[in-house]
Amino acid sequence: MAEQTQIVIRWWHFALIGVMILMFVMFAAGLGRDTRFIPSPLIGKPAYDFKLKQLRADKEISLSDFKGTAVVLNFWASWCVACRDEHHVLLESAKKYTGKPVQFLGVNSKDTKKAAIGFMEQRGFFPYPSVVDGQGRLGLEYGVYGMPETFFINEKGIIVAKHIGALTPEIVEKNIGLTGALEQRAVSISDDASSKKEVRQ
């Protein structure tokens, strides 16, 4: 029992230790991340142009109507829980960016008109139009996984950012900054110079 044999170093010792370290590093790196985040291949590509009926008006809207301004395209539905969480963020942001070259646009997907209007009646109407995307076909064009998802499109019609899940004021501000809409027109719009700095930051 007492005699000590030396440790004999073998190649598999290194293999075993290597594999273990590799796995544990990978798990540790994997722990903190958001599993819901899936990068979109559409970033940097032209946004799909559509022509759809509005939720609260009979006129059709198409994305190309807003050429020249940045567009915040928000997919939502009355049954989606996170849409309730981000509702006030959208209201406030839309108000904050009035008068700036940023157009908010809602896409009401896989919903009924009655439920969607009821949702807004209860929580406040969006100060911008929403289009109706009946069975979610537009959602497929935009590679929408679940709702809510928000696309940030620059004035040239290129998608510059996508956010999955509920928006926060910071996320809206950061991504609108990415569209470059505020930098260009900052000269002509004088009332809020401070926001420009924040955005560039």
Partner: peptide, 17 residues
């Protein structure tokens, strides 16, 4: 993960040793 690391280090460590 921490638990897994402790168990593996002890058991594979003993195996190597």
């Amino acid at each position: 993960l921490g638990f897994l690391i402790v168990v593996s280090v002890i058991s594979y460590g003993l195996l190597i040793w």
